[in-house]
């Protein structure tokens, strides 16, 4: 599964924007099978936390499905 690391800069419902070290921003949607809820995303944005996202591609959508998010330096969830 592809992985991307970066900082969560925008959160709306289950959607978030991740900005990588190269400055590129990508839109992710928390997948239905991800072990996490949308309300856990806002604190990540407030902390400007550095996270590692395992994701899958989507059909007919410019965005990725986040399957697993782990805060860098903490265990995954």
């Amino acid at each position: 599964m592809p992985v991307r690391e970066g900082v969560v800069t925008i959160v709306q419902e289950s959607r978030f924007q991740l900005v990588g070290d190269d400055g590129s921003a990508h839109l992710f949607i928390l997948g239905r099978n991800a072990a996490g809820e949308a309300d856990q995303l806002a604190p990540l944005q407030r902390r400007q936390a550095r996270v590692r996202v395992e994701y899958a591609r989507t059909r007919n959508l410019i965005g990725f499905v986040a399957e697993k998010i782990s805060v860098c330096g903490e265990s995954g969830r």
């Binding site: 709306q12 959607r15 839109l27």
Partner: peptide, 10 residues
């Protein structure tokens, strides 16, 4: 833009 919604129906 505001709601961070992905482009769809490509």
């Amino acid at each position: 833009e505001w709601n961070n919604l992905p482009a769809d129906n490509l």
